Simulated assay, not measured.
Amino acid sequence: MKEQSFHNHTRYQPLQHFIWLPLSLSMLVCTIGYVIYQIMNDAFSLQLLFLLGLVVLAIIPGMLARIYAITLQDRLIRTEEQLRYYMLTKKRIDPRITIKQMIALLFASDEEYVRLVDRAVAENLSPREIKREIHVWRRDDHRV
């Protein structure tokens, strides 16, 4: 497998990013356009509101599934990174570190990890800055 780096660590889910999202957006835009067209032609009806509501209701479950998966994943990453820090230092991780920083630190090798955690807390590094500081990347192919 190709080595992960700052430039190629982003993961896309083809069905989610390239099919469901574009189709949902186009369906919503077309439906809104159709409703506006009907209103301008004095052909507004309750059925149009039901159509718009149906389109919105069709999109919501996909959005919720994604939000729930990412929220759960973030909780798991927090737990994994707290355990990883403890295993490497025999100390608890600083509570000031944010979940976004932990997610960025997920990619750091064990050799760089403790130093980057300490810097992230001390200098309040952004996730992007943390990722730029990683020299040896740990692969993560299991993200949602």
Results as ranks from 00 to 15, higher is better:
residue 37 Y to P: 07
residue 37 Y to A: 13
residue 37 Y to N: 15
residue 38 Q to Y: 08
residue 38 Q to W: 10
residue 38 Q to T: 09
residue 38 Q to G: 06
residue 39 I to Y: 11
residue 40 M to A: 15
residue 42 D to Y: 14
residue 42 D to V: 09
residue 42 D to E: 12
residue 44 F to G: 05
residue 44 F to W: 14
residue 45 S to Y: 03
residue 45 S to D: 08
residue 45 S to T: 15
residue 46 L to Q: 13
residue 46 L to D: 14
residue 47 Q to R: 14
residue 47 Q to C: 10
residue 48 L to R: 00
residue 50 F to M: 14
residue 51 L to D: 00
residue 51 L to M: 12
residue 51 L to W: 02
residue 52 L to H: 03
residue 52 L to W: 01
residue 52 L to D: 03
residue 54 L to Q: 01
residue 57 L to E: 04
residue 58 A to S: 10
residue 61 P to G: 07
residue 61 P to H: 01
residue 63 M to Y: 13
residue 63 M to G: 12
residue 64 L to E: 09
residue 64 L to Q: 12
residue 65 A to R: 10
residue 65 A to Y: 14
residue 65 A to M: 12
residue 66 R to L: 14
residue 66 R to H: 15
residue 67 I to H: 09
residue 69 A to C: 03
residue 72 L to F: 07
residue 75 R to N: 09
residue 76 L to K: 10
residue 77 I to N: 02
residue 77 I to M: 07
residue 78 R to H: 10
residue 78 R to I: 11
residue 79 T to C: 09
residue 80 E to G: 08
residue 82 Q to W: 00
residue 82 Q to D: 01
residue 82 Q to K: 13
residue 85 Y to F: 07
residue 85 Y to Q: 05
residue 86 Y to F: 12
residue 87 M to S: 11
residue 89 T to E: 02
residue 89 T to Q: 04
residue 90 K to W: 07
residue 91 K to W: 03
residue 96 R to S: 13
residue 98 T to H: 05
residue 98 T to R: 10
residue 98 T to D: 06
residue 99 I to G: 09
residue 100 K to F: 09
residue 104 A to H: 02
residue 106 L to N: 09
residue 106 L to R: 09
residue 106 L to W: 04
residue 107 F to A: 06
residue 107 F to I: 05
residue 108 A to R: 04
residue 110 D to Y: 01
residue 113 Y to P: 02
residue 114 V to N: 00
residue 115 R to P: 04
residue 117 V to K: 03
residue 117 V to W: 03
residue 118 D to W: 04
